[in-house]
Amino acid sequence: MSAAAWFKSRVGADRQAVRQSVDALPDGLWTKCPKCNEILFSKELEKNLRVCSKCGYHYRLTAWERIQITVDEGTFKEIEAGLVTVNPLNFPDYEAKIERDKLKTGLNDGMVVGLAEIGGHPVGLGVTDWFMGGSMGSVYGEKVARLFELATSRKLPVVMFTMSGGARMQEGILSLMQMAKTAAAVARHSKAHLPYIVVLTDPTTAGVHASFASLGDFIFAEPGALIGFAGARVAAQAGLIERPANFQTAEFQLEHGMIDRILPRREIKPTIIKVLDFCMGKEVTSDAE
């Protein structure tokens, strides 16, 4: 299935309607940057990979948009799309929220995993959509674990784009266990000498940041992304008042040695390809020739 057909099959008119009502001005031709208030021509914004041309603000991407700008055209094949959430704790209102976000995103869960090629390198790819705040429950953790297991058995690198508010509260302790599950899956992949590249996008916090998102051989982040251990509301609960202005941003994490580089969106794919070339033993060619 082509990438576009895949997208069409999963995302209906609902998605477009939501996207327009949230992001765009009434006629849909123009969009206001939430950071600098610049009025941007929507088509130009798309062309610029949804980065504000004035202030460099990086809009959040849907899973599909991320896949489209990352993989070699037409190479993405989704796996494990049939895993769906149940309500293991009988948590109040959980089903309704899941149904709402299924409709909103056209996905069964925020974590979308599959096989793809990037710069000609076959990889296992994980991307996240803003489904239940990108939170990690049983399905999410299982998909991450299965991706790493498949990549390990096929000797493939894993490229992971994270976007998450943390462990999913509605699945309680089972969500906490997904942290251990995913970290253990990364361990086995790593022991097989296979590369794991993480790109932290806005926001990556709490249970996801404190598990597989922090375990990459290479960790990159988009500019200005919120990255940290305690989610904003948890930190507020804990009474964290005095903090530096850039606290829990990509810039803060870079300053403290927690990530390799901050990459503007346009540089992500070329950098991933360079890293894959390095890890997977592509011959070095000289630019001078």
């Binding site: 970290a183 361990a187 404190a210 598990s211 922090s214 940290g228 804990a238 530096p244 829990q248 403290h256």
Partner: peptide
């Protein structure tokens, strides 16, 4: 979850422990 803990990588330390 203090600024101190975040600056020295509280997430990384927990993730690394689980992995190892």
């Amino acid at each position: 979850c203090s600024v101190d803990a975040e600056a020295r990588g509280i997430s990384e330390s927990i993730a690394r422990n689980m992995m190892d």
